[in-house]
Design a protein around this nucleic acid. Structure first.
Length: 457
RNA sequence: GGUGCGGUGGCCAAGUGGUAAGGCGGCAGUCUGCAAAACUGCUAUUCGCGGGUUCGAUUCCCGCCCGCACCUCCA
């Protein structure tokens, strides 16, 4: 498989370190608020990625839940998001985390994203984080300030590896942030933050350095290495994490182990609104629930995400979501109309091969999707097409073969029967009126060779 | 100010040094009592602009214009 590796800034051929399988870590949600559809785009991309990898290798997929220590600023100032969410909603920080985690997985599941093999919460791995900070301290990478234990990035020469040296240098010249004076370098970051002296935090733990809570970056390093070992094949996340979060993860982990932390960094691009990016702080965000409330299915959104390459920004509009819904319904309809006849094994193998070749070329989902549409037009048996699309849907997970049993309300059925009778008598005026009445109930009637068929509008 | 990504038909969106996937929409036909759906066909001589390299560039190089993202938390 070819993958664009952010570390190399080019496509590279991927093979797992251990032939027994791929180790993959994905940055999970910070559970202080609803996930928005931009967040969810990344999880859809990761799910597709894992499904494609699984056509070749077993995959050990680990995802974290950030339920502590994620501050509202990377300058290590500002408040902890969990505590902030708790204050906002008048609940405990623990309840907030639990609530939004549950909500997150509802969305995750409804988008047909496969749950990772291991889902780990930051609050349940404080011990591992402390051990990692301790190691870094022993190796001389840390220093203490009045508010925490910091990582000295100047001690790690390879610091700029992921983001690029020019970018790191640029931090100083054009910085818009006031840096903590006690920090030795602008890029230094907190490993452990002390609890404020004047107030008690809801989430705090004792440590060799005093009561406090972990920095955001340390959780991923500690948990990723606990479950996947010091060198991980693939680490995914959003592009926004390249410059700070992932750069810091590398610094911490490699300084501690002396080994390469991640072999392939794979980053998903943003979903953007016409007005700009989707942002929680700017109040410009849409949730999956909001789409559902407007009558869209989560899988309509999944389809939309599959029509764009994961490394290009995708502009979200309701117009494009409409298009996705129409396309998905049309595709499912065509698939349903395919006959179960003989399968041409040679043709099938060829189709699968082309399909996988597209996906294994840096996850080109739009191209793979186009192949599915083209297949429908090809001059091969329906059975072959059906078998192929069944296979394709194990990767796309669009439920193309799910036959929804439509619950027809009694009143609709009555109208339907009356319409059938009217048509039989060639009373088309009446049958058209009945069609309108059925339409008013929210259904579309289609006249097929097998009789009337009802669909939800 | 620094860094990175991108500008492809009405819309969304792949792609390639050798002449533009796919979907949506639109148009026409088949089917239908009429629709809807389905099916068939058509729908970019052209890939932001200007140069250059080349037998040949949308694809490579240079400059410009425009958009977006990152450098504040964000996937």
């Amino acid at each position: 498989m070819q993958l664009y590796n952010t570390l190399a800034k080019k496509k590279q051929n991927f093979t797992p370190l251990d032939t027994g399988g791929v180790t993959l870590y994905a940055c999970g949600p910070t559970v202080y608020n609803y996930a928005h559809i931009g967040n969810l785009r990344t999880y859809i991309f990761e799910d597709l990625f894992v499904r494609v990898l699984r056509t070749e290798f077993p995959v050990r997929h680990v995802m974290n839940i950030t339920d502590v220590g994620h501050l509202t600023s990377d300058a290590d100032e500002g408040e902890d998001k969990m505590e902030l969410g708790a204050a906002r909603e008048g609940k405990s920080a623990w309840d907030i985390a639990k609530f939004y985690e549950k909500k997150f997985f509802e969305d995750f599941d409804s988008l047909n994203c496969t749950r990772p093999v291991i889902i780990c919460r930051a609050t349940e791995h404080i011990k591992e984080m402390l051990a990692l900070v301790k190691t870094l301290e022993e190796k001389g990478y840390t220093y203490r300030t009045s508010d925490g234990i910091y990582y000295d990035t100047s001690k790690f020469p390879a610091y700029a590896g992921l983001a690029g040296a020019a970018h790191i240098t640029g931090l100083k010249s054009g910085a818009r942030v006031e840096f903590n004076d006690e920090k030795k370098n602008p890029s230094d970051f907190a490993l452990w933050k002390f609890s404020p002296k004047t107030q008690k935090r809801q989430m705090e733990w004792d440590s060799p350095w005093g009561m406090g809570f972990p920095g955001w970056h340390i959780e991923c390093s500690a948990m990723a290495m606990k479950y996947l070992g010091p060198t991980i094949d693939i680490h995914c996340g959003g592009v926004d994490h390249i410059a700070v979060h992932h750069t810091n993860e590398i610094a911490q982990s490699e300084a501690a182990t002396g080994k390469q932390y991640v072999r392939y960094w794979v980053h998903g691009e943003f979903l953007v609104l016409r007005a700009g990016k989707m942002s929680k702080s700017a109040g410009t965000f849409l949730t999956l629930d909001a789409l559902k409330a407007q009558g869209y299915s989560p899988l309509d959104y999944r389809y939309l995400c599959l029509t764009a390459h994961y490394r290009t920004q995708l502009e979200f509009t309701f117009e494009s979501l409409d298009y996705a819904r129409t396309s998905l319904r049309g595709l499912a309809e065509r698939v349903r109309n395919l006959q179960n006849n003989a399968v041409d094994k040679t043709a099938l193998a060829m189709l699968k091969e082309n399909f996988l070749a597209a996906l294994r070329d840096d996850l080109n989902a739009p191209k793979a999707l186009a192949l599915v549409w083209e297949t429908l037009k090809e001059n091969i048996s329906d059975g072959t097409k059906k078998e192929f699309i069944k296979f394709a849907d194990t990767v796309f997970a669009l439920d193309l073969f799910k036959t929804e049993t439509l619950q027809i309300p009694r009143e609709a059925q009555t109208l339907l029967d009356a319409r059938a009778a009217a048509r039989k008598n060639k009373d088309f005026k009446k049958s058209d009126e009945l069609r309108d009445e059925i339409s008013a109930l929210g259904f579309i009637v289609k006249d097929t060779p097998q009789g009337q068929k009802l669909e939800v509008k």
